Amino acid sequence: MALQVDMIAGSRIEVVVTPLGRQLSHIDGFSAATIMGDGSVMLILDLVALMRNVSNIAKVEQQKANKTVKQAHKPVVLIVDDSVTVRKVTSRLLERNGYEAQVAMDGIDALEKLQEMLPEAIVLDI
């Protein structure tokens, strides 16, 4: 978190702090307000609340990023079998358990698919 101060109004100032009204109380990061000697309104920062909000936002963003990474990467399994039934049953079982299933009808088909992808596992019969 960074805070930029435009200017320091003086080294000794008497400040009368008043709570924020209904119009401004919903704004995060401000705890109160005061009226300066020239009549201008000065909002008083609540630095602890600002740091807490920034920390919470960072945690939420990190959780979203972690969730996206977990969802994005499903392990790929290549199923090689000449039986349509075995391919369908095995691929459905793997997909229900969080895998991405790719199928090949035979060894030649499997070799062609391996040119385009690199699976984490290959399921095949002899």
Rank of each mutant, 00 (worst) to 15 (best):
Q4L: 07
Q4D: 13
Q4S: 05
V5M: 07
V5C: 08
D6P: 11
D6F: 06
M7V: 02
A9N: 14
A9C: 15
A9Y: 15
A9Q: 10
G10D: 11
G10Y: 03
S11A: 07
I13K: 09
I13M: 05
E14R: 15
E14F: 14
E14V: 13
V15F: 11
V15E: 11
V16Q: 09
V16M: 10
V16P: 08
V17F: 10
V17Q: 09
V17Y: 08
T18Q: 14
P19L: 09
G21F: 06
R22S: 14
R22L: 10
Q23F: 01
L24Y: 11
L24R: 13
S25N: 07
H26T: 09
I27D: 13
D28T: 04
G29H: 10
F30E: 12
F30V: 12
A32T: 12
A32K: 09
A32F: 06
T34W: 06
M36V: 07
M36S: 08
G37Y: 11
D38Q: 04
G39N: 08
G39P: 14
G39W: 12
G39S: 06
S40A: 07
S40C: 02
M42N: 14
M42C: 09
L43G: 13
I44H: 11
I44K: 12
L45T: 09
L45H: 08
L45V: 07
D46H: 10
L47E: 15
V48K: 15
L50K: 13
L50A: 06
M51W: 09
M51H: 14
M51V: 06
R52S: 14
N53K: 15
N53G: 01
V54I: 06
N56D: 04
N56R: 15
I57M: 14
A58Y: 04
A58R: 14
A58G: 03
K59L: 07
K59T: 10
V60D: 10
Q62S: 02
Q62C: 00
Q62K: 13
Q63F: 07
K64Q: 11
K64P: 05
A65W: 01
A65M: 08
K67S: 08
K67V: 00
T68Y: 03
V69C: 00
V69N: 12
K70A: 04
K70R: 12
K70V: 00
Q71P: 05
A72V: 01
H73P: 00
K74W: 02
P75M: 01
P75C: 01
V76N: 04
L78G: 02
V80K: 01
V80R: 00
D82R: 06
S83E: 13
S83C: 02
V84Q: 15
V84W: 06
T85D: 13
V86E: 05
V86I: 11
R87G: 05
R87M: 04
K88A: 00
K88H: 06
T90E: 03
S91C: 05
L93N: 12
L94A: 03
L94H: 04
E95D: 10
E95F: 03
E95A: 03
R96P: 13
N97S: 02
G98D: 08
G98R: 05
Y99T: 01
Y99M: 01
Y99I: 01
E100F: 07
